[in-house]
Amino acid sequence: MLTDYVILAAMWLFGIAGFFLLIPRNNRRKGILSFMVFQGIIWLCDMPSFKYDLLSAPVRVLPKATDLTITINYLFYPVLFSIYYVNRRVNSSIPYRIIYYLFWVSSITLFDVILERYTNLLEYGRITWSGMWIYIGFIFFVSVLICNWFYKEELIRTKGSEPNDH
């Protein structure tokens, strides 16, 4: 039980520190946007997942208010995603990008599975590790699409002739 809370505290600490240390200053806005997009998507997806017992979180923050895990969904994974999104190389080859994507999704799944197995922070119900891999991959993919849309629009707009037109 104590271990669980230590891990939760560590996730808050490393999450916040990671956001400030691993996202370059000039990309902070992009970091915040990707953080928020991922957070919104994962929260939306986790509502039905938790409701239909795909997984649960026995030890969590604010246990009376919600059964969902705030530490992981609200902070830690969104930070990891924003680190992924900001630091990815946009102009690299497609195989490189796929490997980069799979590396991140697989690492987070591995982390998730370890949490499930050795702590009380997560408990898989009907979902398996492979299901979780697809689940996280899906949320990553959707979030990347939304963030790309956001910045593509901006690119077109700033290239336009009226920079002050908003």
Binding site: L33, M36, P63, K64, A65, Y74
Partner: peptide
Amino acid sequence: VAFLLKQVLTFLLGLVVVE
């Protein structure tokens, strides 16, 4: 951006208020 920022804020505060 306004939508997402508000969501980040209300989600946590809403949970705290209920907790």
